[in-house]
Design a protein around this nucleic acid. Structure first.
Ligand SMILES: [Zn+2]
Ligand SMILES: [Zn+2]
Ligand SMILES: [Zn+2]
Ligand SMILES: [Zn+2]
Lengths: 153, 153
DNA sequence: CAGCATAATGAGAATGAGTCTGATTTGCAT
DNA sequence: ATGCAAATCAGACTCATTCTCATTATGCTG
């Protein structure tokens, strides 16, 4: 099991190693997407990923972006997030399980991450009481960011 | 007996009253959608709403369904839920604040509601510590339903 | 009750995220 | 180096949701 030490092993390395172990070949589009996601702390839309790669002169086909994100999501290397704006977002899923959830400003659309250990515990606890085999979760808090709240007042 | 208390002021009555107070006129499409949602405990897609109304011989325009759901969502009479399947779902938002969250089977797509007071408390607590003015939240647990889990084993 | 201003509705076109297809390129084992 | 399967790509396609605008209905006013 590689990747027990997140600080030494970057998400990018861990991801490429996992893909190789699973028998996937390397490919330029996949490398480009993985490298881009590795630089981002919070979620990007497929469109944003596509645009940034193109801006970097590493443009890849739209279909490839989606296919790669789907594969990485299946392998739990990426987390897919849907905050209710009609577009999916994707961010790296760190191997140490460390993760955050999201605040969405329903006025301006801004998204911000937050973490809370107590919330994670509550989710884990309730997960064990359910008939489903829960293996992932999402929490989205909706509201108004400080800018929008001030503007409304 | 769950229903007895809530029946005094049904969601439907509360909703129609709120719309009237806010200065909206009455309309057939709106009544049909509100009555349908009032009969459902958990979330429906716009498509499902459209289909059911048509089956009841109360078909309304697709645009009206979406427009009405958007309005009800804005007025917090309906909660919009997005479990990451690319379609939005809608369910009544009860005035007493009583609500549930959702389990999604990523194999078969089944959705099931669950409630947990401890989880609600954890969310309220963390909400107060953030810079956003949080006024709503969603929790989605992903996993495998008992059928799909058995099938996989 | 008749007439008006305007809100509500509906049919269909338009949009846009995401998926599928079929052809071409590339990685990698032999 | 050769060959096959995996990876990539451009573009067509699907389908949920939104937009447009003509038509209908509601609630007032006189
Ligand atoms: Zn994030
Ligand atoms: Zn904002
Ligand atoms: Zn529900
Ligand atoms: Zn299932």
């Amino acid at each position: 099991m590689a990747g027990t030490r997140a600080t030494r092993t970057s998400w990018r390395e861990h991801t490429l190693a996992t893909l190789a172990d699973a028998g996937y070949r390397r490919g330029g589009a996949r490398n480009a997407v993985v490298e881009l996601l590795d630089r981002e702390d919070c979620a990007l839309t497929a469109q944003e990923i596509d645009d940034r790669l193109r801006a970097d002169g590493r443009g890849v086909g739209r279909a490839s972006v989606y296919r790669i994100l789907e594969l990485l999501t299946e392998l739990r290397l990426v987390q897919r997030i849907d905050v209710g704006q009609g577009v999916a977002r994707y961010e790296r899923h760190l191997p140490d399980g460390d993760h955050h959830h999201h605040l969405v400003c329903d006025s301006c659309g801004q998204i911000e991450p937050f973490e809370d250990p107590a919330l994670e515990q509550a989710i884990e606890r309730v997960s064990r009481t359910l008939s489903f085999a829960v293996d992932d979760h999402d929490v989205v808090l909706h509201g108004a960011c400080s800018d929008c709240r001030d503007a409304a007042a």
